[in-house]
Amino acid sequence: MKDRITIALPKGRVLKEAIGLFGKAGMDCSAILEDPRRLITEREDLGLRFLVVRDQDVPTYVEYGAADLGVAGRDVLLEQGKDLYEPLDLGIGYCRMVVAEPAEMVKEDDPSQWSHIRVATKYPRITERYFLNKGIQVEVIRLYGSIELAPLVGLSERIVDLVSTGETLRKNGLVEVEEIMEVTSRLIANRASLKMNYRRVKEILEVLEKTVKEMKDDKALEL
């Protein structure tokens, strides 16, 4: 009997894309969408079990081996710096992490003159590292949501946040001034599982990699 492999998927915007990708790769888990309150979905016939957890908790489940594999954004992985393998860029959940500030501030603002700045973000470690790398002292204000609000009420001058269409920024009168990085979701793996279940994990990796490539090619054709 094969050992069951547990895969942690992130709640939220990437979930549907991830389910689609696993489905195309022959690991259908669309049952997850039937009941949004269900946290565990079994596919005993495939030897798989899917967990749906908060996106920021996925690396933790995988690091401790509660899940063998997981899907996590590059933003979350870099912020948390956990001891994991990140074998595959799944190419889903694309967005960008940017520095933004109010539109009226942009007019007289010169990023090269920044010295001590206040930045609100959900990503304190990435933010701090990014600005320290540029030699800029930064006071990071860690928020858990609605980051765009911070500059509007004077909590901070700038924010670091994810944007996909830029719509939220625009609505709140904010303008992107610098891009920190592009973000996509990655397949992550527990170190022990990858080695102890190497045959199965390798199989899953290979079929996912193939599927990701096909999807990329399809997209290229559409364009």
């Binding site: 994991l84 393998y85 990140e86 074998p87 595959l88 860029d89 990655r186 793996a189 990858l194 990699e209």
Partner: peptide
């Protein structure tokens, strides 16, 4: 990247 087994990286 090798440490992370990150082939894309």
């Amino acid at each position: 990247a090798i440490r992370l087994k990150d082939r894309s990286g």
